[in-house]
Design a protein around this nucleic acid. Structure first.
Length: 424
RNA sequence: GUGGCCGUAGAUCAGCUGGUAGAUCACCGGAUUGUGGCUCCGGUUGUCGCGGGUUCGAAUCCCGUCGGUCACCCCA
C-alpha cells in the first residue's frame, strides 16, 4: 500500500452501502416527478464556458471563482456547475418549443463547483431538478412548490420552511438593484468588508448576509416587492392564492435572493431545519427564469425550475434502502462440488434469484457464517455425498430447517421458498 | 478564500505532562471428520496523514503541507 493515490479534494466515493440509500432516494424522486408529468432529459456534463457566463452570470460566485473550467483545443469548456443552463441549451438546440407547447423536464446527475468542501457540500455533488417551459404560471409555480413539499414529506423530511419571493419581471430587477444601491451607498461605512465589495459586484447578495453589521443596515432597506410591476404583483398574488388553497405553508421573504442571474419573478427556497444539515440547510432552490430561453437564442419562452441537493436530502431523509443481498448462498465442499455449485448458481440466476457461490473453499462452518452475515435467506450445501446422491442440501437460514432436494427440483424449490417464505 | 477543531489498524476510538502502539467491532481459524445467528479460545492487520525541526529518543512538542470538519463566504 505504498504511495496510494487519494481522491481529489472535495470529490468522494459512494460505497455500495451508501449507494443503496441513494437508489432509494432517487426512485422516490423519479416516482413523484413522473406523477407530475415530467420526463427525464440527459444532457452533457461539459458545456462551453460561455453558456454559464451568459446564464448564471458574471459577478456571481459560481462563475467568478467556482467553475471547473479548462481549455480544450482552444475552446473554453466548463464542467457543469448547475443543471438549468444545459437543459435550456438543449431545449433551444433541439427546438423543443416547436414540438410541444409545454415541456416538463426532469434531470439528475453530478454538478461541480470548486468550493471549500464541508458536510453537505462537495466539489462534485448531485442534483435532481425539474424545468417547465412554455407555461407562464402562476399555477405551475404553485404546483411545483407543492410537489417539492410533497416529495420531501414522502422522504420523511417534514421540518422545513418554504421561503418565497418575487424578483419581478424584466426591468424590475435592474430598477430594484439601483434603488438598493442608492439606499446602501450612504451606509457604506457601516457595511462588512464583503458587502462593500458586493456593492459594486452583486448588491442583491448583501440582502442575505449574516454579518450583524449588514443586517442592521438591511433591516430598513427597500423591499423588492415594493418595486415590482403590476403584472409581477398579480402573478405573485396568484401564486400565493394557489398555495393558500392547497394549504402549502410558505413564508414571504423579500430579502431572499439567489445566486444565479437568470431568475425573474417567482423565487423560492426550501430549507431544512434538522441539525444534521448545519449551515448547508438549503435543500431545494428554484424560481422562474422567463428571459433565459430567449437570452440563449430561443424564442421568448416562460420557464420555471428548481434543483434539489441530493446529499442534503440524504442527510435529512429517513428512507430505508431496499435489500440488495443475495437470496441464496451456495457452499460447495470439495472439487467436484465446486463445478456443481457453479452450474446450480447459474440456473438460479436465470430463474431470477440472486445467488452467490463461495469459491474460496474453507470450512463449512465459515461458509455458513458468511451466508448468515450476508443476510441470505437460503444456504445450499453441496458436498461429495450430495453429488453422489444427486441432491443438494437446502437450508432455510431463518427457520434453522434443512432438507435434501433432488438436483432437478432445486430451482423450483428455491423460487418457491424465496417467494413463499418457509421451505417446509 | 478567512478563522477554529481534528487526522493512530478496514471501522470507531484509547494512548496522561516525550521512551519506537493498544481496545472494541469486522475479518480468518478453532471449540463435533460437513452445519450459521449466542458463547468461548486463538490469529492477521498499522511507513501513528505527509514533510521538516527540537531531542539521546516523538504518535506525543514546534513549523509547514495535505485531507476532513465547524463557522464565515456561498450555495444544492
Amino acid at each position: 500500500m505504498s504511495r496510494a493515490i487519494s481522491a481529489v479534494k472535495g470529490m468522494n466515493d459512494l460505497l455500495p452501502t451508501d449507494v443503496a440509500r441513494w437508489r432509494a432516494l432517487e426512485s422516490t424522486i423519479r416516482e413523484v416527478v413522473r406523477l407530475h408529468g415530467y420526463r427525464e432529459i440527459r444532457v452533457p456534463v461539459i458545456e462551453h464556458t460561455q453558456l454559464y457566463v451568459r446564464s448564471v452570470g458574471e459577478g456571481t460566485d459560481i462563475v467568478d471563482k467556482e467553475m471547473y473550467s479548462f481549455v480544450f483545443h482552444d475552446e473554453p469548456m466548463t464542467v457543469r456547475p448547475e443543471g438549468t443552463a444545459g437543459v435550456v441549451r438543449a431545449y433551444v438546440e433541439h427546438g423543443l418549443h416547436a414540438k410541444e407547447p409545454v415541456s416538463r423536464l426532469y434531470y439528475e446527475g453530478p454538478m461541480f463547483r470548486g468550493e471549500r468542501p464541508a458536510r453537505g457540500r462537495y466539489g462534485q455533488f448531485y442534483q435532481a431538478g425539474c424545468e417547465v417551459f412554455g407555461d407562464p404560471g402562476p399555477l405551475v409555480d404553485a404546483e411545483m412548490i407543492d410537489m417539492i413539499v410533497g416529495l420531501l414529506r414522502r422522504l420523511g423530511i417534514t421540518d422545513v420552511e418554504v421561503l418565497l419571493n418575487s424578483l419581478g419581471g424584466k426591468g424590475t430587477k435592474a430598477r430594484y438593484r439601483e434603488r438598493l444601491v442608492e439606499y446602501l451607498e450612504p451606509h457604506k461605512d457601516a457595511l462588512s468588508e464583503d458587502s462593500k465589495r458586493r456593492l459594486t459586484t452583486n448588491p442583491l447578495r448583501i440582502l442575505d448576509s449574516k454579518d450583524p453589521r449588514d443586517q442592521k443596515v438591511i433591516a430598513s432597506a427597500p423591499s423588492v416587492l415594493d418595486v415590482i410591476g403590476d403584472d409581477d404583483r398579480a402573478h405573485f398574488d396568484g401564486l400565493r392564492r394557489h398555495l393558500d388553497k392547497l394549504g402549502t405553508p410558505y413564508t414571504v421573504e423579500p430579502r431572499l435572493v439567489r445566486g444565479l442571474d437568470y431568475y425573474s419573478r417567482t423565487l423560492f427556497e426550501v430549507r431544512g431545519r434538522g441539525g444534521e444539515l448545519g449551515a448547508q440547510n438549503t435543500l431545494v432552490g428554484g424560481g422562474r427564469y422567463d428571459g433565459l430561453v430567449e437570452e440563449l437564442g430561443g424564442p421568448p419562452t416562460p420557464a420555471i425550475g428548481f434543483a434539489a441537493g441530493l446529499e442534503r436530502l440524504l442527510l435529512a431523509t429517513s428512507v430505508a434502502p431496499a435489500k440488495d443481498q443475495p437470496e441464496v448462498f451456495v457452499a460447495p465442499l470439495g472439487e467436484r462440488a465446486m463445478g456443481e455449485a457453479l452450474a446450480l448458481a447459474r440456473e438460479l440466476r436465470e430463474a431470477g434469484v440472486p445467488t452467490l457461490v463461495e469459491g474460496r473453499g474453507g470450512s463449512l462452518k465459515s461458509m455458513l457464517r458468511r451466508a448468515n452475515a450476508l443476510g441470505s435467506t437460503i444456504a445450499m450445501v453441496i458436498g461429495d455425498g450430495e453429488v453422489d446422491r444427486g441432491v443438494v442440501q437446502l437450508k432455510d437460514l431463518a427457520a434453522h430447517a434443512q432438507r435434501d432436494v433432488p438436483r432437478a427440483e432445486v430451482v423450483s424449490a428455491v423460487t418457491e421458498a424465496v417467494r413463499g417464505g418457509s421451505t417446509g
